[in-house]
Amino acid sequence: MFAPDELTDDGFLGGRLRVLQPRRGYRAATDPVLLAAAVPAEPGQSVLELGCGVGVASLCLAARVPGLRLAGLELQPAYAALARENAARNGVALEVVEGDLARMPAPLRASFDHVIANPPYYPAGGGTGAADPGRERAMREATPLGLWIGAGIRRLAPRGLLSLIFGADRLPDALAALDARMGSTVVLPLQARAGREAKRVILQSRKGGKGTFRLLPPFVLHEGDRHDGDRESFTPPAAQILRGGGVFPFRLI
């Protein structure tokens, strides 16, 4: 577990959420906030987050949608403990279960209206590993992306929605992992700035969906063509999500 001096107390959604994170380990940034903003959950529905880390995506979703039944699965016990603490300090009912999605723990072998995930960004092998073991495990794939998606599909109720955010270079792998049970798939590219290559995407797919595949226009996060000093320079729609706790100005599915 983390000692108090190994943690930072960070604000999300313009300070509406206070989240403890490891100073040197994996630290949530914009991805889980953007993921939560894409999920069209409604009060009373159930949501499972695979690889919940310290709980940021689930907490952001709870801040926007009251009355959700939230569960999270986390492999690393220290991060699972932080997720429980963060849920308690923000007044959110989040059941966090420690375990491996490849061997789904019994308490989570149920059906959910939504399954969400921010899978590890880097594929297994190659590259320089992170110095911190927790960050390395969170950022580098040990369980193949296809198994993440397969685990999510199995946990979805009929007509349930799978929502993922990941690196754009993994999109072919993700689409290949969506089997015949899934349909109405939508991909939203995320651009740091207009005209730049999209480095991340959000993918949504519905269990039992019959719609055709759709590729949406890119969503731009920052104004201008370069970083301007210390200003965040978020576009108004991005600021409404990242600081205001809002949703995308369009519905993906």
Rank of each mutant, 00 (worst) to 15 (best):
G126P: 01
L70M: 07
R196C: 07
L156M: 05
K210I: 09
G125R: 12
K210W: 05
A138L: 02
D10E: 14
L161S: 14
H227W: 12
D9L: 13
G127K: 13
G44D: 07
P217W: 07
V47W: 01
R109S: 08
A117R: 10
G127V: 15
L59R: 09
G224M: 13
H114Q: 05
V186M: 03
A151V: 02
A174S: 04
R89N: 09
N86K: 12
V19I: 15
E141T: 01
D230F: 10
L20P: 00
A63M: 01
R16K: 07
R200I: 08
T235N: 02
A180F: 06
R170Q: 11
L215R: 14
A176C: 15
A157V: 07
G245D: 04
L68S: 03
L156E: 05
R170S: 14
G126F: 08
A106I: 04
P32L: 05
D179C: 04
E74W: 05
R137T: 15
A192V: 12
C60R: 03
A117V: 04
I116V: 15
T8I: 10
A177N: 08
P133L: 12
L175S: 12
V115L: 03
E95Y: 04
R24E: 07
G99H: 02
C60Q: 00
G208Y: 09
L59I: 06
E223I: 04
A29E: 15
S111G: 14
P218K: 14
R214D: 04
D113C: 03
R109L: 14
F112C: 06
A157Y: 06
V33R: 01
I149V: 14
P123D: 08
K207P: 05
R135W: 03
I149T: 00
Q191M: 06
L68P: 01
R231A: 13
P4A: 07
R214A: 13
R23P: 02
G209K: 02
